[in-house]
Design a protein around this nucleic acid. Structure first.
Lengths: 253, 253
DNA sequence: CGGTTAATTGATCGGCATCAAATATGGTGG
DNA sequence: CCACCATATTTGATGCCGATCAATTAACCG
């Protein structure tokens, strides 16, 4: 059975950017039909990762950027003491690996949260195609910029919000991203553990667990382990803006 | 007297990348002598900002990237409720404005902390030069990547560290950056307010003030308003790694 | 089905926010 | 140059949110 699924997956993977289901949700956004074929020649390798599989780890030499094709990954940094900070969760169409551009080696780790397939964009080849396709350069810059903005959101969430607001924002953001992928934005199946969520938000797992329970009591969610159903999207949205603690911490001189 | 300083400053500003004191600490790092002249043609405008002067604000159309030439700036986001999150402090040689690439408009604000001069790199012209000088493309990507990594550091600091460790890391980082600029890394003159520091770290101003006092009591610092002298760099470095709270919060599943 | 890990729930504690007030500073006008 | 005012900074007292410690229950995997 294992060989069979592998064969099936490999067939899936052989499809090019032109025929990929992600389409405009990925790097090809804004790229013309002709240039798309050239982008295809950039995608050399396509990899499958099982749950827990590592795409790159801290210290790995920089070889490529990676596009999540299906499944999901988390990225995180880990200091010498083993202390971890989750940086983000990455869904199909998202590009990761930019951290390695500065020093030509990765300074973070990327790990699959579930069985996932990855498009690999060897950087040398990508650079060459970029020099031929100016639109691709602009698009790539847009993608990096989006990553910068996303990290700003993460910072605001950790620095300014209460724990409950943080979780609400996290869930709403995840729901929105799934919906943009034409998937269910109401009945979520969280690919990451409570530990991952807690770490991402700068909280402990007990707090996150309690918050899920509280949101369920409030009638906002229906929680069943990984399965989370958003019963009241309106309330969830309210909670995201519920700046009850909008005081001193928010001023700046 | 005001006109005189302006004339003086303008003369200073007329100097090109080739003769700029920042040299390899800025974008020219790794750019050959010949290509440097071409980079010079990119730097169209050079601007002076007084303390509190705004370089760009949220919503401004994207026109250029900016290099801090002298002085310092802070960048921050501000939500509809007026709630602020300081994203970073930017010293000479650092490039800001990447946030605008995604949507062709800025989604943050940049403000001078003291009288500062700025090199403006109109993006249209920069793109053209980039297409002619591949080394510049790589260098620009490295710079963006450094910004991504810096934000990772910020996230780790806010998410994992105690308040005292956060301030220690902040001070050490600032000292290191000044030293790299050939400036005093011991006797610092903090250009930003306590409010800015507190906001950057996700704390309130009272906490930051108390921490400065505590570090002074411990003999690590000598604090006099903006003037901070690092008496014991060794102790400060210790405090940065003093993961006394390295427990649950750091695990991940 | 047993062993391991994930998740939940409860009780308690502590660090940082909040509230309050004093002091210092810097800019402005007289 | 000095008095004055607005603002920045410091210091103190108190309270609360989320961390910690502890234990139970549920899921997963062989």
């Amino acid at each position: 059975m294992v060989p069979e699924t592998n064969v099936f997956d490999l067939n899936q993977l052989r499809r090019s950017c032109s025929s990929c289901a992600l389409g405009e949700l990925c790097l090809p956004a804004g790229i013309g039909h002709d240039d798309l074929d050239r982008l295809d020649t950039t995608v050399r390798d396509k990899r499958m990762l099982d749950r827990g599989g590592v795409l790159y780890r801290d210290g790995d030499p920089f070889a490529a950027l990676y596009v999540v094709r299906s499944g999901s990954l988390k990225t995180f940094v880990q200091d010498e003491a083993g202390d971890v900070q989750v940086l983000g969760f990455h869904l199909p169409g998202e590009i990761i690996g930019f951290d390695a551009l500065a020093l030509n080696r990765h300074v973070s780790q990327a790990e699959a949260l579930e069985r996932s397939s990855i498009c690999e964009l060897p950087y040398a080849r990508l650079q060459q195609v970029i020099s031929e396709v100016p639109a691709l350069h602009r698009q790539l810059m847009r993608v990096i910029s989006r990553e910068v903005i996303e990290e700003h959101r993460h910072l605001v969430m950790m620095g300014r919000q209460q724990a409950q607001e943080q979780l609400a924002i996290f869930l709403k953001s995840l729901a929105d991203r799934y919906q943009r992928l034409q998937r269910d934005g109401i009945a979520l199946s969280l690919p990451m553990s409570r530990y991952d969520i807690a770490n991402y938000l700068g909280l402990v797992v007990e707090t996150v667990s309690r918050l899920f329970s509280r949101l369920e009591e409030m009638g906002v969610l229906e929680v069943n382990r990984k399965a989370v159903r958003i019963l009241r999207p309106d309330l969830l949205a309210d909670l995201c803006r519920n700046n009850t603690a909008a005081t001193k911490r928010h001023d700046t001189g």
